[in-house]
Amino acid sequence: MPSDLPKYVKRVPRGDRVHLYFRFRGCYTPLPGDPQSAEFFEAYAQALAGTEKPKGGKRCADGSVDALIRDYKASPEFTGLAAKTQRDYGRELDHLGGALGRFPARSIRRSAIVKMRNKISASRGTRSADFFVSVAARCFRIGLDLDYVDTNPAEKIDRINDAEAFKRWPVEARAAFEASSPPPHLMTAYMIALYTAQSLGDVLRLARTVYDGRGFQARRKKTKRSGYIPAFSVLRSYLDKLPKDGVLFVTRPDGTRWTERAFSEEFRAWLDKLGLDELHFHGLRKSTSAALAEAGASPHEIAAITLHATIEMVEHYTREADQKRMAESAIAKLEVAHRRARKKSSGVLPLKNKAR
């Protein structure tokens, strides 16, 4: 049965009333209730114009998602990010603007973000999908401050990527890698990452001039945090045996600098050759963070090494170690209670009161 409403207009019953919405690409824009009124046709024409690409370049309508993205990119929260992070965020913002940019930011619902996440997951994987949601949430968070939106439609959307995507390196895997005689640049980067918990980009940028023989005056490019990181004794012994030529610790065989992509490809190939296909370079950072937690280091102490921007991120890396420590503590307390109960009675495990 043909609809008596214009294109894209839908009736949505809510309680005893029926509301009219302009629905396009998962976004609902409310329209005046009387489809014969001048106000309705004016609002409809404005919404319909939003479905057409403007000629002669992109135009940001007031209050639109495109305008929000523009203002977010001009904010200190965005411009203060490292250049690479800005490029990574920019790609996700292009996806957001390409799908929803012409619509009023206030009309965007959580369902529209989830549908975009699911589509990205199918084409680019779950990690990319979660990253898109994270960037969208940051953008709409600025929208709250700038009065583009009243609520953040991308806030608290569940992650769909496996939290263990970057697994810790087991002792056996580390032993296998070290025994495989990897090329010097792979081994040096591995040792620095394992004993300083720095990310690949920061390891590749690490210069000899910031090492005083006892530790590093390091700087994390992503968060722009810097600090002194003492070198573990095993790492000091390794670095002392390296040739002292070159500005950087990790270089190509011809002395030139590695790009992250090229180094990652070679490191990945070496791991695959050893059958360590489930491990990644970034897992070394997680391994060290977890080892510090298991050794009893506090989150603030760990952050002083990893140079994380927030304690929440440290907790993300050390959650497994914390869970293990708390579980062992809980069972230890149960063992003590059990021994006490055996001294007093027949040895029934004190999980509940005995019947009288």
Score class of each variant (00 low, 15 high):
W270Y: 13
V12I: 01
R25F: 04
W169S: 11
Y72R: 11
P2F: 11
L351I: 15
G283E: 06
C60Y: 11
A45W: 02
A176H: 03
S37M: 06
G213N: 09
L200A: 08
R208C: 03
E172R: 15
D150S: 08
A137H: 02
P182L: 07
Y238D: 07
S298H: 05
R14N: 04
I160Y: 02
E172L: 14
F216E: 10
R174W: 02
Y28P: 12
H19R: 01
A105V: 00
V210Q: 05
S233F: 15
I69L: 06
T251I: 08
S345G: 07
I331H: 11
K221Y: 02
R25D: 01
F131E: 09
L5Q: 05
A269L: 00
L279P: 13
K7T: 10
H280A: 10
K344L: 15
S226P: 11
R285H: 12
L349R: 05
E266M: 04
P299G: 01
I157D: 08
S64L: 05
W169P: 07
K55G: 05
A262P: 07
R159Q: 10
T29N: 00
E265D: 12
R214H: 15
N353K: 12
T85V: 02
K354D: 11
F131H: 15
V171Y: 10
D277G: 11
E315S: 02
F267P: 09
R124C: 11
H19C: 01
A112W: 07
T85A: 01
G97A: 00
T288G: 00
A197R: 07
G101Q: 01
C60M: 00
G215Y: 06
A43R: 00
N152Q: 08
A99H: 09
D150C: 03
R225K: 15
A197W: 04
E92R: 14
T310I: 00
R208L: 08
G33N: 13
H338N: 01
F232M: 10
P104K: 03
A293S: 09
P350K: 07
F132N: 05
A165W: 09
K352Y: 14
F40Y: 02
A309S: 14
A105Q: 00
R285Y: 10
P184K: 12
R109S: 03
A290Y: 06
Q323V: 04
P54I: 12
T223P: 02
A163S: 11
I69E: 10
D88P: 04
Y228S: 14
A309N: 12
N118S: 05
P76S: 08
P170F: 06
A163W: 03
H19V: 05
